[in-house]
Design a protein around this nucleic acid. Structure first.
Lengths: 192, 192
DNA sequence: CTGGCGGTGGCACCGAGTGCCGCTTAGCGT
DNA sequence: ACGCTAAGCGGCACTCGGTGCCACCGCCAG
């Protein structure tokens, strides 16, 4: 977040998402991305370590933000803290939503992207587990904390998936889904 | 599980896991795997669509087993059904544990394997969501059901991770961890 | 003017994965 | 026993993602 990524990276990203949308992810080679971005192939890989990271790039700025947001939350209920942190992080301007939608669409139906995304989430999971353990006064390695961390991320994936599935859902709808998902986690899945 | 995979595939798999353990996953090329298995490189790819699948191969026999086990469970509590189904599926003989351990170890610390594994789990997630929706009498697309499916898989990942972290844990320990994880899901994460 | 220095990108290389095709071999009918 | 067919095998060549190396260009400092 420190410095805005160079304008060039931004342009590369836009052009790439454009091509992915029109041709498909697998059908677009890095060579095409490079020429379309007016840059050498070698240089492309200096901006993005992987073709996948063009799509996922911004997502992991989120980790630092998540940790910060969690640190700012008081109270001893990790679910409430996590919910608040996520709502704080995922506050998108209306203009950003179409781009978000495109990204989510790609992530959903290009398996390799989904895979890479979940690897990124591992850090989120452990950050959430650590936070929960702290609030509970438990060992962060405790199974419950670990399950919590992973379950929260799982819930967020479900939220994004559901949001993406409703074509006209807006930012408020996203918030509502987050609430619903966290309620489920909080209450547990026993009985009704 | 239906027909035992050809003896050749089995041998290939053993040799490969051996090499992975001694040299590391990334440091072992498919060429090496092929020669070590006494087979052409091209043939290797007929047995395993991907180098990754050598490690993950058996895991997705599990899907069919999971679905079958879920279908066999009665009652309207999806957590109980899922727990029972998982315990039924993950009933390993003592002799299998070392191999399981090696696999889990690879999956844990080769990010690409972890990624691929989670993609495989998507089918599990949706199977679990569908099952839960049926027992609750809800729409399988409902957010709660989706969260449930993903959370259960998340819990299982935590279980395997915790089990793998304790060097001398046996099959009973695995069962205990499963119980603990499912209890957490059932009760929810509110308060202590 | 000159000597670093960071960004660039060409080139060559590696490894995974795929299509094609010729070969072996096992199985079959006659 | 003989030939034919079909399936599995594996070599070859190719694509594409990703990396190391290095030569080049522009910039600022001395």
């Amino acid at each position: 977040m420190a410095t805005t990524r160079s304008a060039r990276a931004q342009r590369l990203e836009n052009v790439a998402l454009e091509l992915f949308a029109s041709q498909g992810f697998d059908e677009t080679t890095v060579d095409e991305l490079a020429v379309a971005g007016g840059v050498g192939r070698r240089t492309f890989f200096r901006y993005f370590p992987t073709k996948l990271d063009v799509v996922l790039g911004e997502l992991d700025d989120g980790l630092a933000a998540l940790v910060a947001a969690l640190a700012g939350e008081r109270g001893d209920d990790p679910v409430a803290a996590a919910r608040a942190a996520f709502l704080a992080i995922n506050h998108y301007a209306a203009a950003e939503l179409p781009a978000l939608r495109r990204r989510l669409g790609l992530i959903e139906d290009v398996p390799e992207l989904a895979a890479r995304a979940t690897v990124r989430y591992r850090d989120w999971e452990s950050a959430l587990a650590t936070d929960a353990a702290r609030r509970w006064g438990e060992d962060p390695a405790s199974l419950r904390a670990q399950v919590f961390g992973r379950a929260v991320v799982a819930a967020m994936r479900a939220v994004f998936s559901a949001w993406h599935a409703r074509p006209e859902a807006d930012a408020d709808a996203l918030g509502a889904l987050v609430d619903e998902a966290f309620d489920a986690l909080s209450r547990g899945f026993a009985s009704p």
